[in-house]
């Protein structure tokens, strides 16, 4: 009985089993989500579906990286396991004092460094620059203000005049003016508020993110968009939805007790339905205001 050999083999098996464990247990538990709406797209163990024009860049980078990591790990793992089996202590075997003179490790390290440089300069930086540097032209884009608060997303559309009404903390009133709109500002008259994010398909979107209280994070999994929403700052993000459907808006930064339920829905639809929706939401609001007067 050779104990070390058994242990060596056992270690290999255990490593493999552990790697496989999560993937073996496939079988999706799909189903409608708490809110009662069906969310579109196939969700499972991979990345969520991509519904934006540039999202595939991020996906590609993630995939290339993981193949690279896997290759490194496997190559390295084979050498590791080989050493464990080949050089186990046993009668008549003595370790060698002199260090191995192999240059392989040096080349491997240089290779790793070079590949990392490629990932960084060749992939990550251009993607980041492409998605963060140049906002789409204002005239061509849908413009939405996104206002986060514990624990809700508010969406503010400029209405037909294309200009947002002025807002300030001093005007805030939880009942009928949660975003602190200055009603005396003429630009505010046709502004539209919603708690669902509707966007027309195939048209760039600019979201201006602000927060009323603490830090939140605006996360659109299917758009590959994530951006912290920081009080005192106004941060724009942009993307172009290309697939119609009903998706989710998540909060990705711990923002208090109900952080987990700070969820909203996003509807990507054709121009016509978007226009109808905007009009209807606008009407409901006017109606409310009349009632209050």
């Amino acid at each position: 009985m050779n104990r070390s050999r058994i242990i060596g083999v056992a270690t290999v098996i255990v490593v493999i089993v552990c790697m496989m464990a999560p993937t073996v247990v496939l079988g999706q538990t799909d189903g409608p989500v708490a809110s009662g709406h069906i969310i579109d797209g196939d969700y499972g163990y991979g990345m969520p579906p991509n519904a934006s024009k540039d999202g595939h860049n991020v996906d590609n980078l993630i995939h290339i990286l993981h193949w690279f990591m896997l290759a490194l790990f496997v190559a390295w793992g084979i050498f590791f396991v080989y050493c464990l089996m080949r050089f186990r202590a046993r009668a008549g075997h003595r370790a060698t004092y002199d260090p191995v003179k192999a240059k392989v490790s040096k080349y491997a390290e240089i290779g790793v460094a070079a590949f990392e440089a490629f990932l960084l300069i060749g992939l990550s930086m251009p993607i980041w620059a492409a998605t963060k540097n140049e906002p789409p032209a204002k005239e061509l884009a849908t413009h939405v203000r996104v206002v986060a608060e514990q624990f809700q997303w508010n969406f503010h559309y400029p209405g037909t005049d294309g200009t947002f009404g002025r807002t300030a903390a001093a005007f805030v009133d939880t009942v009928d003016n949660p975003l602190g709109l200055d009603r005396s500002d003429p630009a505010a008259e046709d502004d539209v508020f919603a708690t669902e994010l509707h966007l027309p398909v195939n048209k760039p979107v600019i979201c201006d993110l602000t927060s009323k209280d603490v830090i939140h994070s605006f996360f659109l999994p299917v758009m590959r968009v994530k951006q912290d929403v920081i009080p005192g700052m106004r941060i724009p993000v942009w993307f172009t939805p290309v697939k119609e459907g009903r998706y989710e808006v998540a909060c990705a930064q711990l923002c208090g007790n109900n952080h987990y339920s700070m969820r909203a829905e996003m509807v990507i639809e054709d121009d016509a339905s978007f226009a109808t929706w905007l009009e209807e939401v606008g009407k409901v609001e006017e109606f409310d205001e009349d009632e209050l007067d």
């Binding site: 989500v33 163990y45 991979g46 969520p48 993630i62 989710e248 969820r263």
Partner: peptide
């Protein structure tokens, strides 16, 4: 790692409120 790829946020009291979380609840 699979959960994260699927987009499940950390510090989440209950991930099943999201469609992408519910799908990987078995993990």
């Amino acid at each position: 790692f699979w959960q994260g790829m699927a987009g499940v946020s950390r510090r989440l009291y209950d991930q099943t409120v999201y469609a992408h979380g519910d799908a990987v609840q078995s993990l």
